[in-house]
Design a protein around this nucleic acid. Structure first.
Lengths: 112, 112
DNA sequence: TGAATATGCACTGTTTATGGACCAATTCTT
DNA sequence: AAGAATTGGTCCATAAACAGTGCATATTCA
């Protein structure tokens, strides 16, 4: 079956997407870039920039992060160096974890 | 013209997307959730979860953030409350900025 | 105020993302 | 080691993302 016409997003993720879009718009304007300028730099259309700033959850995460980076927004509050280190750490942690998750059948509600 | 077959992402944004995916995978495994479980909770297919964890930039930002939220990853390092507040602040800042950007033509070349 | 430009929105055609089913390989548990 | 479940990949059908365009409105600046 195809892509669902409407996807139910949680409030938290909707807010997060919207916030990121607003931050991008703010940073763009502060840097005195037009939507068209940002679009060109990001290699996307102006229309997509508008959807990104509006917080459309359907936008690809690639273009969104690209736009964010261009206007100077640090994802994860991290510099490129820190980002790389975090990646190594997570990759490291992943090698120590099981690759396949088993049963766990009974109530996954952990948190003490 | 249609969607570009291949989009050129910067290293930074590619790393950021990949890192987020790895973090989601790590958190999922630590919580003992199967990819199928996470998919079901997020309302997406298992295949999409795989692409998300792999760091595919083409994935919608909505599903990615949704998955992240489900496994407990705080976007922006913020709790829901903080997220809401940040949103207000940015919205506030936006009202104080010009709505349309003028010339500024001359090189805003920032690093990042 | 007027001119120039940015923005918002809607429409169209093409490409892509996604769901679903299926299969093979991997991996965990007993 | 065996069995059961997870994972990873492919293939197909379909809805959606995206680029482009045009145009109306809004906005900045002279």
């Amino acid at each position: 079956m195809p892509k669902p016409a409407l996807r139910p997003y949680s409030r938290y993720s909707r807010d997060a997407v919207a916030l990121l879009g607003q931050q991008i718009r703010r940073a763009r304007i502060e840097k005195k870039l037009t939507a068209g300028d940002l679009a060109e730099r990001a290699g996307v259309s102006r229309g997509l920039v508008q959807r990104i700033e509006r917080g459309d959850p359907g936008c690809g995460i690639g273009p969104v992060f690209e736009a964010a980076a261009i206007v100077g927004i640090r994802l994860f509050d991290s510099s490129p160096a820190a980002l790389s280190q975090m990646s190594d750490e997570v990759k490291q942690a992943l090698t120590l974890l099981p690759r396949a998750v088993r049963p766990a059948k009974i109530e996954t509600d952990d948190d003490f």
